[in-house]
Amino acid sequence: MKYMDHNVVSSKMKSRLTKNKFFKGLFFAATMFGLIVLAVLLIRIITQGGGYINWDFFMNFASRFPEQAGIKSALIGSIYLMLVVAPVSMFLGVGTAIYLEEYAKQNKMNRFIKVNISNLAGVPSVVFGLLGLTIFVRNFDLGISILAAGFTMSLLILPVIIVASQEAIRAVPRELREASFAMGATKWQTIVRVVLPAAVPGVLTGSILALSRAIGETAPLVVIGIPTILMFTPNHLLDTFTALPMQIFDWTKRPQVAFHDVAAAGIIVLMTLLIIMNSIAVFIRNKYQKRY
């Protein structure tokens, strides 16, 4: 008795193989589409702006002469912004995640909170800008300062950090916690000495990716009213400042083509910053990832 009719199989084989090849090609094309567009963008930006990248570009303020224009105030402003956003958003984000995962009871209220944190991640960044303008700039009277912008950006990336930290904390095996409790540790001791160390790679990866988003975001800064014409660097956190994306945005709108090249140079700097931050995330993940 034959289980397979070889004639039927071989007659269908050809069409099956073609189908297989077709989809392989289709998905390969899908992969390449993104990569090629990215490569074209990169090449264009590097050929346009590469010539403007030199020491002066980092040490000069903006200028009416494209060849003298620099990003000093914008770069330092962006770094200051990160110095506010990183601690604020990570403290609030990881704190919320620990509360929700370790302390909170699984009742309706907390499920409601969790759903809304996920929803918050989908709110357009302009809306966060408006929130920041009303609450931090006007109500708290922080003015158009690093602190106000930093708080706004922290709110913007908070949902991402919370969700990433929650996932990381949840991935820590139950047995580890139980072992810790069995040794007589309190909940707090367990969290600090067992759960957090095990969750650190996930928490940091998520946080750094979220920070990368904050450093490239323009819309909330535009809404808050961050200036672009500014020939000084901030002295303290309540000083006004400008940031890289704002400066790039301003240059691309100029009539002179040379300024578009300067903008490209600014994009290269911003992109390098992003790549460095993402590499740190990858590095941390690879180095500290443990499998249980």
Partner: peptide
């Protein structure tokens, strides 16, 4: 730009 060269301690900023 030219003003900040002359009065570097006056911090002028302007948005768009």
């Amino acid at each position: 730009e030219i003003y900040s060269a002359e009065q570097p301690e006056v911090r002028v900023s302007s948005g768009v």
